[in-house]
Amino acid sequence: MNNIKLTMLPLFFILCFIGKGIAETNPPLASWNEGKAKQSVIAFVENVVSTDSADFVPPSERIAVFDNDGTLWAEQPVYFQLFFAINRIKALASEHPEWKTKEPFASVLKGDMESVLAGGEHAILELVMASHAGMSTNEFEVIVNAWLAEAIHPDSGRPYTEMVYQPMLELLHYLRENNFKTFIVSGGGIEFMRPWTEQVYGIPPEQVIGSSIQVEFEIQDGSPTLIRQPELDFYDDKEGKVVAIHQQIGRRPIAAFGNSDGDLQMLQWTTAGDGARFALYVHHTDDKREWAYDRESSIGRFDKGLDEAKEKGWTVVNMKQDWKTIFPAKK
Rank of each mutant, 00 (worst) to 15 (best):
M168T: 02
H96S: 11
L306Q: 06
A54K: 10
V242I: 10
A43N: 08
D221R: 01
K90C: 11
N2A: 13
G202T: 06
E95W: 08
K310M: 03
G275K: 04
P328R: 06
I245T: 04
S211F: 03
V185S: 06
L148K: 14
P58Q: 09
K331N: 13
S31Y: 12
A276T: 00
I4W: 12
F192N: 05
K5F: 15
P104N: 01
A64L: 07
A130S: 15
S60N: 02
Y201L: 06
P230G: 05
I4A: 13
A85M: 10
H153Y: 08
M168Y: 00
K241S: 01
V41K: 03
Q81V: 06
L125Q: 08
R252V: 00
S50I: 12
K100S: 10
R295D: 13
A123T: 03
E34A: 14
E218F: 01
N26E: 13
H246G: 09
H132D: 10
G305Q: 04
D303S: 15
W323I: 07
A276V: 09
R295A: 15
E61G: 05
V108T: 11
D236Q: 04
Y235M: 14
R252G: 01
F183W: 15
P204G: 12
Q220V: 15
D112R: 02
K324N: 12
E139N: 10
Y293A: 06
D69C: 10
L82H: 09
T101D: 10
L117K: 07
W99A: 10
I219F: 13
V282A: 12
M168I: 11
I89L: 04
A106R: 13
D112Y: 04
H122Y: 11
F12I: 09
W147M: 10
A93R: 06
G210K: 07
N87A: 09
F13E: 04
F17A: 14
K90F: 04
E46G: 02
A276W: 08
H246N: 11
G19W: 12
